[in-house]
Design a protein around this nucleic acid. Structure first.
Length: 880
RNA sequence: GGGGGUUUAGCUCAGCUGGCUAGAGCGCUUGCAUGGCAUGCAAGAGGUCACCGGUUCGAAUCCGGUAUCCUCCA
């Protein structure tokens, strides 16, 4: 059975049990501030379990893309070393929201595994919650009784809270769970030891494949548990592990999910894959680990980029960059692949998943491009790091912790490569010092990020929040639902949630509204509005005295309208880009406030001036057509699709969506933001910049309405002022002429000074005195240019050598300069030092100081009155 | 968000503790050499030392700020 069949059959099976099959949410967790990435099947469905949102159906099933690389679930370091940990994996799940419960869930899971997938029953074990006295939780009799119908009692194993009681967080829905484990050892091994002893014992061949969580309690803030009125089921089955069990493979990596990727690597590197593991095989090969790491990481990186998260140096993007670099490092060190390789594997993956996760195939060119650029840039980093290691100041054949850390921290050179190279050279690395430096840096960052989030003070149990800001900007009679205090960086903020609000929370690229809230007679400022899942959070810098008073809200209307102009203009721009450049243009990011808009999109070349002009013109044309806003607030997503609305990869859409249309034949997008009533309101659209932000991503910045007017006025008046100053119509030519003239004049001055110096030179040569066998020229020159004096000194010295030349001169600012040139061999043989001479003389006569080399030095000062004496005093040094 | 680093000729970079007439390689121009090419030799052009301010007699160099890119951490 192929992996594709296995996935298909899971979904078909639950569809036949009246489940609604829903698509995977994007792997990047955009609306959940507690997560960077979706790390479990239930994460995107959290709001349904919490009751913040109504699920699309009481029974739902899906396969969800997950990534476990940060936070509580971090499998990154295990990947490749065993056969069943992955960064990116699929979680198959079936869900009941207050519908069926334990009996059905367990019976179906048994049916699917044994009858559809035909897993041998004698290799399956199940676990149930044995209860917990401290929490006063009973043994899960219901689960036990259900299992007894299918499974012999000695294969039903009781486990405690750690293994079999599941909680989402400190608060919220939770409950006992029941897991199904499969024993994949050989018959021979199985005969030696009973499989039940190996369940939950970290045996690589006796593994959990399916967890059924029964949410029947609510954990309250005080730690107590309360029975939920509506009981739910949350299940998760690791797809890759299931494939291994069904296909009878000895590791997840030996299934057809990974084998095409591993095969490619083996062919490309010319190294055979032998499927060995440290801890299992005595002669395990690093090349096997490396191939698994590369195959695994490629999946994580590809899917995340396809969902719109680009490698970067902060947040989720930084996690992607780290995974990608880890893969490159393994290929580089162990497979001896010193050139970009991951990007070549991406198409294999795209083909493999074109029907389940079509977003990768659809954006293949883009993802390949991004990966390739990222690989190249890391290989460059490695190269410069290698160079840096070569130049290290090595003491006692030891790379100090400080050195290793600097390589890593400042130059991005991985510590394990430092170790590798050190070993090759017979050096050691001060690991403790490195760790210490790293921990210091971590502490520093954590201290900075420290934030004190107070508990919510809940005033009303009603969790539904109504946003009315599409229609009105002022409201009366709202009530505070809850509020809390947040302290970060010594600043205190107050976060307030209302039952009804006109304030738009930051989202979809649009900034949050500002304005005021009036509680009774007290008015406070709303500094910003943000969103946390579906909560609209108003940020106040002062807490009003009476939180129970009815609230009057007033959104800053001028700012909001200017923002709306920019948002609608962004839609017009997006459509124009697709019309002018092609439909490969996909939104990759957007930011807009009352001042300007910024739009990032997938495109491979710099936009030409002509393209920009056409785009700008098209947008302005649509503005002048004064197209009325088309808004469908609650449209079933299927209908929106049919209407041809633009949907974005990496965006999570509900069952019903809001569709914004400006001319059905031009721009139609799903969008939660705020828009103008008709495009004429935008007035004018002007592009101000076009730049690159990442490989394959361009950014257009623009202004509209008042901003556009100001921009144009400012630019035109600047140009007018310049034209006026230069008395010309052709600015460019006038400036070029000026530049050339300036250069010519500068050369001319140089030449004149040189001439003057030449004239002096003959005269000075005449004046040369002889002291012993040394020729001495000492004079105060009427030249202000230090460079010319220097040149003259060098020339004269060359002509008269062995010689000492000492000049005094006065700079245009009136400051004295003493310049002394001594023939090189003279300086050496006579122990003369120009630096010492000028320093002493400058101190004595010029109120200054100086220095240089023994053969040439200069000194300056602030008093030019005794310059003659200073120059004359040079002679004294020769006789001594 | 916090730390470290980068910014010098068209490109890649050197320039240690303040004073070297700002350099190297590649590229460019011109001339010469070889039958041609690869190339070699010689001469030359090309620099607001990222920007703003400060310290100093004097700043590419030291200090502060801004921008930029790189990098680590959160």
């Amino acid at each position: 059975m192929t992996s594709r069949d296995i996935r298909r059959q899971f979904l078909d099976f639950f569809a036949s049990k009246e489940h609604k099959i829903i698509p995977s949410a994007p792997i990047v967790a955009k609306s959940d501030p507690t997560l960077l990435f979706i790390n479990s099947g239930m994460a995107p469905l959290k709001d349904f379990f919490l009751g913040n949102q109504t699920p699309p159906a009481p029974r739902v099933a899906d396969t969800q893309k997950c990534l476990r690389v940060s936070g509580k679930h971090n499998d990154l370091e295990d990947v490749g070393f065993d056969g069943y940990h992955h960064t990116m994996f699929e979680m198959l799940g079936n869900w009941s929201f207050g519908d069926y419960f334990k009996k059905e869930a367990l019976a179906w899971s048994w049916e699917l595994l044994t009858e559809v997938y035909k897993l041998p029953k004698d290799r399956l074990y199940v676990s149930v919650f044995k209860g917990d006295e401290k929490e006063k939780l009973p043994f899960d009799q219901e689960a036990f009784d259900t299992w007894k119908q299918f499974v012999p009692e000695d294969r039903i194993l009781p486990f405690g809270k750690k293994e079999n009681f599941w909680e989402m967080g400190d608060q919220g829905p939770c409950g006992p769970c029941s897991e199904i484990h499969v024993d994949l050892r050989s018959d021979e091994e199985r005969a030696k030891k009973n499989g039940r002893e190996l369940v939950n014992a970290d045996d690589p061949n006796v593994i959990e494949i399916w967890n059924n969580v029964f949410m029947q309690f609510n954990r309250k803030a005080d730690g107590s548990l309360e029975e939920l009125p509506a009981k739910s089921v949350d299940t998760g089955m690791g797809f890759e592990r299931l494939c291994r069990a069904v296909q009878g493979a000895s590791s997840n990596y030996d299934t057809d999910v990974f084998s095409p990727l591993i095969q490619f690597l083996a062919n490309y590197s010319g190294i055979a894959y032998t499927g060995t593991y440290p801890g299992v095989n005595e002669d395990w090969k690093k090349t096997d680990v490396a191939m698994r790491v590369v195959a695994d990481h490629l999946r994580a990186v590809s899917f995340t980029i396809a969902d719109g998260e680009l490698p970067s140096n902060t947040g989720a993007g930084y996690v992607i960059r780290r995974i990608l670099r880890r893969a490159v490092r393994y290929a580089y060190s162990f497979l001896n692949i010193k050139e970009p390789i991951l990007y070549r594997m991406c198409p294999i993956l795209a083909d493999e998943f074109h029907d389940v996760f079509p977003e990768l195939k659809a954006q293949q060119d883009f993802v390949v491009r991004v990966i390739l650029e990222e690989e190249k840039s890391f290989l460059r980093t490695l190269e410069s790091g290698l160079k840096r290691i070569e130049n290290l100041d090595i003491q006692n054949n030891n790379i100090s912790g400080q050195q290793a850390f600097e390589l890593f921290d400042t130059y991005g050179f991985p510590i394990d490569l430092t170790r590798l190279i050190a070993r090759e050279k017979g050096w050691t690395v001060d690991e403790d010092g490195f760790e210490k430096a790293l921990n210091e840096q971590k502490d520093r960052s954590r201290r900075d990020a420290a934030k004190e989030v107070g508990d919510w003070t809940v005033l009303s149990g009603d969790n539904t929040i109504e946003f009315v800001g599409y229609d009105v900007l002022d409201t009366r009679g709202s009530q505070v639902v809850k509020y809390r205090t947040v302290v970060a960086k010594g600043q205190t903020q107050y976060q307030v949630v209302l039952d009804r609000t006109p304030f738009y929370p930051e989202g979809g690229g649009q900034v949050g509204d500002t304005g005021t809230m009036t509680f009774g007679a007290e008015t406070v400022r709303v500094a910003d509005t943000k969103k946390e899942n579906d909560l609209v959070i108003h940020i106040l810098d002062k807490l009003p005295a009476d939180m129970t008073a009815p609230v009057m809200c007033q959104v800053d209307a001028r700012k909001r309208h200017l923002t709306e102009n920019n948002h609608s203009a962004t839609h017009l721009l997006h459509a124009a880009l697709r019309q002018v450049l092609g439909t490969h243009v996909q939104q990759k990011g957007s930011y807009l406030d009352d001042k300007a808009l910024r739009f990032d999109f997938a495109h491979f070349q710099k936009l030409t001036d002509e393209e920009l002009a056409r785009i700008e013109h098209l947008v302005n044309e649509k503005i002048r057509q004064n197209i009325a806003l088309g808004e469908d607030r609650r449209l079933p997503i299927e209908e929106a699709k049919k209407a041809g609305a633009m949907m974005l990869f990496g965006e999570k859409y509900g069952e019903t969506v809001r569709m914004i249309t400006f001319d059905p034949g031009y721009s139609r997008e799903l969008c939660g933001g705020c828009h103008v009533k008709a495009t004429g309101q935008i007035g004018l659209f002007k592009i101000t910049a076009e730049t690159a932000v990442a490989a394959g991503v361009r950014r257009v910045e623009a202004v509209t309405a008042d901003g556009a007017e100001a921009y144009i006025t400012e630019n035109l008046s600047e140009v007018a002022a310049l034209k006026n100053m230069l008395k010309t119509k052709d600015l460019a030519k006038a400036v070029t002429d000026l530049q050339e003239e300036n250069k010519r004049l500068q050369k001319e001055i140089e030449r004149l000074v040189q001439e003057q110096a030449n004239a002096l030179r003959g005269e000075l040569r005449q004046q040369a005195q002889t002291v012993g066998n040394i020729r001495l020229v000492a004079a105060v020159l009427p030249i202000g240019d230090a460079n010319a004096v220097k040149t003259l000194a060098f020339e004269l010295e060359r002509e008269l050598a062995p010689a000492v030349v000492a000049f005094g001169s006065v700079s245009p600012e009136g400051k004295p300069l003493l310049t002394v040139k001594i023939s090189d061999d003279l300086a050496k043989s006579q122990g003369l030092n120009a630096g010492t001479i000028v320093r002493e003389l400058a101190q004595k006569f010029l109120k200054g100081g100086g220095g240089g080399q023994p053969f040439f030095a200069t000194a300056g000062g602030s008093d030019a009155s005794q310059l003659d004496a200073a120059v004359a005093a040079v002679r004294g040094y020769l006789q001594a």
